[in-house]
Simulated scan of single mutants.
Amino acid sequence: MKTIAALAALAISLGSRVQAQTLPTAPCFIYDDDKIEAPCSVSVKNTSSYSIRLYGADAEPEFWSTAAVNGSWADAQGRGFNKNFLYITGANKEGVKIPMTHPVLARHNDSTPTQWQVSFFVPSAFSRNETSVPTPTDKDVTIQRAPLFKVAFKEFPGFATEKDFLSCEADLRAALAADGVATLGGTDWSRVWAQYDSPFTLFGRHNECWVRVQ
């Protein structure tokens, strides 16, 4: 676990100040009553319009299984999810089953709008180092180490549509611009759509649009 001083120094190097707190030990959960693992993060800022989190600051590396999909967001939703789901249910060289995590991420950048990266978080039990992460057998699925990155995000409920995510992102970018918060573009982690719930969850659904910030 990183110390408060280490986190503060890290935040300063990114051009922002992290609130005085330590990272939780793995595994991390996004809700107090939710036992589905999520990547660890540090809360940096909360406003009435958006919040900011810092990811990748934990001492342990974090990894994502990532399926590359060409096409629309609907294509990414279907094929990308299925490829990752097959990976965690045994389509890996080790033949192991990996617990489901959240969120499921769909990300791309504006220069390649039809090239999507759909990712599942690899649980901490498997991700102490790259050699311990099961190897995908599908050539379209790769294992990516999560970068150190800071995102502003906005939440919304319900079964998310592409229109919902676009509206969420437009509102988020407008709020960031109004506050003078600089955004970062040009990478596959600069624009992310996150969904936290199983398709079988009918109520209390949680979705977020993320924009990478400096």
Results as ranks from 00 to 15, higher is better:
K2I: 14
K2G: 03
A11Q: 05
Q21L: 04
T22A: 15
L23K: 07
P27S: 13
F29Q: 03
P39C: 12
C40I: 15
V42F: 06
S51P: 14
R53I: 04
R53W: 04
L54M: 10
G56M: 04
E62R: 09
F63S: 03
W64D: 01
T66G: 06
A67N: 02
V69T: 00
W73L: 00
A76I: 00
K83R: 07
N92G: 12
K93Y: 11
G95R: 10
G95T: 11
K97R: 08
K97L: 12
I98V: 14
H102T: 06
P103I: 02
V104R: 02
Q117Y: 02
Q117L: 02
S119H: 01
F120R: 04
F121S: 01
S127C: 10
S132F: 11
D138C: 08
Q144S: 13
A146E: 11
P147H: 04
E155T: 13
F159P: 10
E162T: 08
D164I: 03
S167F: 03
E169A: 02
V181S: 07
T187Q: 08
T187V: 11
W189T: 02
Q195F: 14
D197S: 13
S198C: 09
N207D: 11
V211M: 12
V213E: 04
Q214H: 15
Q214G: 11
